[in-house]
Design a protein around this nucleic acid. Structure first.
Lengths: 159, 159
DNA sequence: GTGCGTGCAAAGTCTTTGCAAACCG
DNA sequence: CGGTTTGCAAAGACTTTGCACGCAC
């Protein structure tokens, strides 16, 4: 979908909940649309926009991300690196995506797999819990780190 | 399994990696064994042991939990409440368990479902990623909060 | 115009670290 | 006895907040 169309949708969603579509909010959302990296921390966003917008403070970035999360425009993620990360919440995605986190180098790769529908029913029945969303994270080793691990293990065994 | 047997196993695992089984480490592990609550933050552990062991500092609790995590004696969890939580890593559990996090009241319920084996193969093949572990979190509403939500929605609609 | 939103700096919360003393093995 | 581990306090990292000013609607 075209970026400008997405922005219009986001604007609408902000307005219809009676929040103001300020320049700052637009710029922050634009950063997500423009960034090659999908998983941005508050500091990342701040760095991305700061050169062209030195007047936007870090606190505003935090407050905007918090707002966007509550409006479900973005999703708050935790990859265990001590800071929150955010990604645009693509409601149109038929299959939700998840994250493979490399324990060696920290690289995060996305992975599609949708099993919510089946599980929603199962969990609802068994636990009296109405599932709204879920997060699935895999921890492992990417091919590069896996290779390094093997080399490392061989060295240890050779001692 | 008996608590004392578990403790012996934990002791062994610490010793065989050439770490010392100090009184502090034992007391912290014991807190997990004794606590009814499975998901403890560093502060929780500190509070649990502080009355009987006022000499154990919070920094030691943090350092121990970090060590235990690296030794895979405990698992580090994030429920989005701004602090890390830890639970004993039960390697004997045939089926791993996951967490249902109530968006209304924050209650966390455990839920068993094992699908790692199938997915491990699939992910390995498709993404060149060797999966070691995974975390699955569901967000939703427990029966109490769901009921409150419904009441709330009715009120809003009645306006 | 009015009230929500922002910038700045200060404060808050959780976690880590430096160092001398204590302790495990 | 020697290298780990600990306690304490201080520092660090990320995030939130108070307040006066500014801007969207």
């Amino acid at each position: 979908m075209k970026k400008s169309v997405i922005m219009t949708t986001l604007k609408k969603k902000i307005r219809e909940r009676n929040y103001k579509f300020t320049m700052q909010r637009q710029i922050i959302l634009q950063a997500f649309l423009d960034s090659k990296e999908n998983h941005l921390s508050a500091e990342d966003v701040f760095a991305l926009i700061h050169d062209s917008n030195p007047d936007i403070g870090l606190a505003t970035v935090y407050r905007s991300l918090e707002l966007f999360t509550s409006l479900e425009l973005v999703k708050k993620l935790d990859f265990g690196d001590g800071r929150n990360r955010y990604e645009l919440n693509d409601h149109n995605l038929a299959h939700s995506h998840h994250h493979l986190i490399c324990l060696g180098c920290g690289k995060v790769v996305e992975f599609s797999y949708n099993f919510l529908d089946d599980l929603k029913k199962k969990v609802k029945k068994e636990n009296a819990f109405n599932i709204v969303d879920y997060q699935l994270k895999f921890y492992g080793y990417c091919s590069v780190c896996e290779k390094n691990n093997l080399v490392q293990r061989k060295k240890i065994l050779a001692r």
